[in-house]
Design a protein around this nucleic acid. Structure first.
Lengths: 149, 149
DNA sequence: TTGATTCGTAGTCGTGTTGGATACGAATTC
DNA sequence: GAATTCGTATCCAACACGACTACGAATCAA
């Protein structure tokens, strides 16, 4: 990785936190976008990944939107990570020269480093849940955002 | 993050592994570049980061180049990671809407997630050293690359 | 001293990624 | 039937990455 220029995980966590703050009716992508400072289309794309992982569900049409499929305390950040990260590498691997003995061998060993690091990230994120991200002000938020939408 | 498009860590590990395989005289950036499939200028930039961290030293001029400042088994991959990563975030944080209570609070909590994840990565990488990346074929490599250079 | 080598770094450029904007069909509710 | 919202495609600007060239400074060999 090095510089992380992709906000999908961050936006996904933000969206889930917001959804858990609004347990009543589903939240529209526009509402989420307004809170996360992202575009509604982007929010729908990211939440689409979470839906494929079974973390959220959506319903089109009037009064449609997005909602959690299970309690926030049962959704680990590792689940979110895997949903948006898929099999993408976390360390920026390069393709060394295959003909060079150092190149080919180090390439193989670095792949192992990549796997171990990915596991460490998932393990750490699995120790936290969306509920940990939901601020104490959630009830106020619900009252605040509902009429504004 | 998601897709990791930065190869600095990978190239740095490759370079250090190569340096540990050539304990005799210093290796030029051109030699490293040839093995890592990168440009000499890029190699110098990356190794420059490692030098700032005290992991390697360089000498300009004829028969100049790069060499390790301590045994490969005493250089952890965490050292390499910190040298190239610096304080760059590992998760792609976005800037939520500060005026929104969910936005501001989740932003603060996500920063904590970022810190914990960064620590987990460092901890995992600290459990491995450059020596673990140096293939068994190192002696052959030395004999192979020296005349070619 | 002269020439060759190598680092150090600045600048430019092509390529790929990211995410916003628009558009439009499908689904759903009133 | 009208309004809303998802789902998705497409286009575009901004940015990150790394190759490449260039050139001065440092070092060593002859």
């Amino acid at each position: 990785m090095s510089r992380a220029t992709n906000t999908q995980f961050s936006v996904a966590c933000h969206a889930l936190s917001l959804l858990s703050s609004l347990p009543g009716e589903p939240a529209s992508s526009e509402l989420v976008a307004g809170s996360a400072a992202a575009s509604p289309v982007y929010v729908r794309r990211v939440l689409g990944l979470l839906r494929r992982a079974g973390l959220v569900a959506s319903r089109p049409g009037a009064h449609g939107g997005w909602h959690l499929t299970r309690p926030a305390c049962e959704v680990s950040l590792g689940d979110v990570w895997r949903a948006v990260q898929g099999d993408e590498p976390v360390l920026g691997l390069h393709a060394p020269v295959a003909a060079c003995p150092v190149g080919s061998e180090v390439g193989r060993l670095m792949a192992e480093v990549e796997r171990r690091t990915a596991r460490a990230i998932e393990h750490e994120l699995d120790s936290m849940t969306v509920a940990d991200l939901t601020p104490a002000c959630a009830p106020f938020t619900a009252a605040m955002l509902s009429p504004a939408a």
